[in-house]
């Protein structure tokens, strides 16, 4: 079955195969052995994330999303008023979704949704590349800085990125991902592997107590988890490195067989998925919990308070595996 999907002729997504695979999965529902939960979304997901404390969000980049609330109930499919989602970020009051510009270099639509998936606010921002959420602000990220997203559809003036430290012949051509730790902001640029603008991946904390950490050809976004920053490194992104966000000092490194997917599962716990699921203590990356899932490679991971949600390369299901409670 999977081979049939993999060998399908490129051109369009093989929805027949997806639907058939979904039917097979539905036929096996509910697979709730040992509390493991399977869910087949009515679309092939592009991403998933924990939001609103204990809810799970699954979306497809064509604007469709589905929400599983804390009681385990999945919502109907919500269609966002955008043809293409570039980014989704959960925040304290729901989530923000950034749509792709509909005309070349035109403005992008950003909408805020409440925990039930209902639109609460919207903004139109020219040149938006990303959205970022901190404890007290929602911002659109442009190529040169951030613009606050204010009430009543207002967009604040751009606050330029700091001057990047280090001696490089040119500034990065893509904007950084912004990560927050206490009062500090960490700016992380993925590697630029173009010949003209080549630059390694790097995270930087600007300012007097600033630091720079460069980590090769990684195009993966780092994960902030409490006071720790976790980056994928190595030729195949097979190594995890934990940095202290305050100082940029390396606190631990650990190699895996392949590229591990990671998600923050609490201030000192990192969920790690490869061909098994694991929780590891930060910053040492010592394993505290482990669960086998079979032989399939996990390609996506999100950490909920009592579950790890994941997808594998050989199934369209979102699987929720009970994990140790964060307070345990």
């Amino acid at each position: 079955m999977t081979a049939a999907i993999a060998n399908a002729k490129p051109g369009t997504t093989n929805y027949c195969a997806v639907a058939f695979f979904g039917f097979i999965s539905l036929a096996t529902l509910p697979a709730l052995a040992d509390g493991v939960e399977h869910h087949t979304p009515p679309f092939l997901p592009t991403g998933m994330a924990m939001f609103n404390t204990d809810s799970l969000l699954v979306w497809r980049d064509d604007g469709r999303l589905q929400i599983r609330d804390g009681k385990g109930v999945w919502s109907a499919v919500v269609q966002l008023p955008m043809q293409k989602i570039m980014q989704i970020r959960p925040d304290a009051s729901g989530l923000l979704a950034l749509g792709a510009p509909e005309t070349p270099f035109g403005p992008s639509l950003i909408i805020a949704l409440d925990p039930a998936g209902k639109e609460s606010e919207r903004w139109s921002v020219a040149g938006a590349w990303d959205i970022t959420v901190s404890a007290d602000a929602r911002q659109a990220v442009t190529l040169s800085g951030v613009r606050p997203l204010l009430p009543q559809a207002a967009v604040g003036a751009e606050q330029a990125f700091p001057k990047w430290a280090g001696k490089r012949p040119e500034n990065p051509q893509f904007p950084p991902k912004l990560l927050y730790w206490e009062a500090a902001t960490i700016y992380c640029h993925p590697a630029d592997l173009s010949m003209q603008h080549y630059a390694p991946a790097r995270c930087e904390r600007p300012g007097a107590e600033g630091w720079i950490y460069e980590y090769g050809e990684s195009m993966q976004a780092p994960v902030a988890c409490g006071p720790w920053l976790v980056v994928n490194e190595g030729k195949h992104q097979e190594q995890l490195t934990v940095l202290e966000m305050a100082t940029g000092k390396i606190r631990s490194r650990r190699k895996f067989h392949s590229h591990p997917r990671i998600a923050c599962a609490g201030e000192d716990q990192l969920a790690i998925a490869e061909r098994s699921l694991e929780q590891a203590q930060l910053p040492a990356l010592n394993s505290t919990w482990h669960a086998s899932i079979g032989k399939d490679q996990i390609i996506e991971l999100a950490a909920l308070p009592r579950y790890l949600a994941y997808r594998t390369e050989k199934s369209l299901d979102v699987i929720l595996m009970p994990s140790p409670r964060r307070s345990d």
Partner: peptide, 25 residues
């Protein structure tokens, strides 16, 4: 040598499902 240059300019590309996700072929 350069990851964006492993494919010749003008080569037809397409999106399809592979190993659990959409990939570009």
């Amino acid at each position: 040598t350069w990851i964006w240059s492993t494919i010749a300019w003008g080569t037809r590309i397409s999106v399809s499902f592979d190993k659990g996700e959409e990939k570009v072929f």
